[in-house]
Amino acid sequence: MNVLLSGIVGSTAYGLAHAGSDIDRLGLYAAPTVELHGLHRPAESHVTTAPDRTLHEAAKWCRLALGCNPTASELVWLPADLYEVRTELGEELIALRRTFLSARAVRNSYLGYATQQFRKLSNRDRSDPQGLDRAAKHARHLVRLVEQGLALHETGEVVVRLAEPERVRALGERFARTPDDAAALLAGAEARFDRPGVLPDAPDEAPVESWLRRVRAVHYAPAE
């Protein structure tokens, strides 16, 4: 595969990993341009579990990032030590990362995913002995998504590595036991999202389109 950018994401990137945590990898690649011209388009994602790795084709990753998908977007905001592949085109994409951002998409995606975690937290089966651990994981994701989304709304920056992971773990344990406490966190986040932020109303697609066309030009291979 023509991997352009790849790195370690998930709990390791956030600072929430423990001894038994999986190492999750995320990246993007360029399909050979000639393969995009046929009747059947190539797969847009490749996912493996051994190792845990997700690779999105460049165009799909761009669409996800333009929608401010939290998982996809963090690839271009990782701390430098977490990158495993950084090609020249990958570096260009990192330099373009702010052009993908827009106020509505950030609110909808980060707050939307946090709300999904809250539903999972609230609807857990309390008779399941393993349920509390899963609920704590959902709660940690809820707190992370709220804090990352608000930082993005108010500063224009994605902060992948949490400044206080122990505090997030503690909140996760608390919210797992008393999910109603998390409702106040979500309500406060909604109020802050209602205030004006620093992000534009719409992403700047022109440089993204230009980058993707360069990717296609570089990876064009004529049929034999």
Rank of each mutant, 00 (worst) to 15 (best):
V159G: 05
H141R: 11
T12E: 15
L16N: 09
S102Q: 05
K60M: 06
T115D: 11
L212Y: 07
A30D: 08
V146A: 01
L64G: 04
D180Y: 04
L64Q: 05
I8S: 05
L212G: 08
V9T: 09
E205G: 07
D125S: 13
T48D: 09
S109Y: 03
S210Y: 07
R195F: 05
A223D: 14
L4F: 04
D22I: 07
R104P: 05
D194Q: 12
L162F: 03
E224L: 14
D128C: 03
L36F: 10
T33S: 15
E92C: 10
A221Y: 08
A151V: 12
G112H: 01
E74V: 07
R41W: 13
R134G: 12
L101T: 07
D24C: 10
R41S: 13
D125R: 15
H219P: 00
N108M: 15
V218D: 13
G197K: 00
E88Y: 04
H56C: 09
A72V: 02
G188W: 08
R124S: 12
A183W: 11
A30L: 01
S109H: 09
A136Y: 02
G67P: 01
K60L: 14
Y113G: 00
V160E: 09
W211C: 01
R167I: 09
S127M: 10
G27F: 01
E74H: 06
R104C: 08
A191G: 09
R25N: 11
P32G: 03
R174Y: 03
L16W: 00
R177S: 14
A17M: 00
D81L: 05
P51N: 10
A103C: 04
T115K: 10
R97G: 06
L78P: 13
S11A: 11
F193G: 09
A95V: 03
V76Q: 04
L152K: 02
N123E: 14
G188L: 11
V159A: 07
T115L: 07
L145G: 07
